[in-house]
């Protein structure tokens, strides 16, 4: 009898774990920044842009859906209702890397126009610029 009861308890526990996992899997929220993700590619802004400008298709294969740590010069910072866009662009360039931050992931004190910065983000491809989403500014050693 007690053996049967033990099976029932084990079954119930497993069922609860499975249900919990299914619940989590279905309703989990989107991560708002990639701060806790592992970096796939470390690159400077000019090389990243160059890769997309010379061959978008092959650059997509290498960089899209990857977590990129990119270093470049801050060209401009714009703010909207839910976050910030930091535009990495060299003075004379027409394009650059556009990095979107959700508000809690951005600290305006860490970025000044004209200075160098490293930004971690999810590369989603290229429009007029290379697009990084869910960005964060990693702590520098």
């Amino acid at each position: 009898m007690s053996k049967k009861l033990r099976y029932v308890v084990i079954f119930l526990v497993l069922a609860i774990i499975a249900a919990g996992f299914a619940w989590w899997y279905t309703f989990r929220e989107t991560d708002r920044s990639v701060a806790s993700y592992k970096t796939d590619v470390t690159i400077d802004a000019a090389s990243l842009l160059q890769a997309f400008e010379s061959n978008e298709d092959s650059a997509n294969i290498v960089f899209r859906e990857k977590i990129i740590l990119v270093t470049g010069t801050v060209g401009s910072i714009t703010q909207d209702t839910t976050g910030y866009s930091v535009y990495l662009k060299e003075n004379d360039a027409i394009s650059g890397i556009i990095c979107r931050f959700d508000r809690p992931a951005f600290n305006p004190e860490l970025a000044t126009v004209g200075s160098s910065i490293s930004i971690k983000g999810l590369c989603n491809g290229y429009l007029m610029d290379v697009v990084l989403d869910k960005c964060s500014i990693p702590d520098m050693p």
């Binding site: 899997y25 279905t26 309703f27 989990r28 929220e29 989107t30 991560d31 899209r64 859906e65 979107r100 989603n124 491809g125 429009l127 007029m128 697009v131 989403d133």
Partner: peptide, 16 residues
């Protein structure tokens, strides 16, 4: 207008 479909952000990860 031009956009990357992957830049659409949903509240729930699975929907995205």
């Amino acid at each position: 207008f031009m956009l990357l479909v992957k830049s659409f952000e949903f509240k729930r990860a699975l929907m995205q």
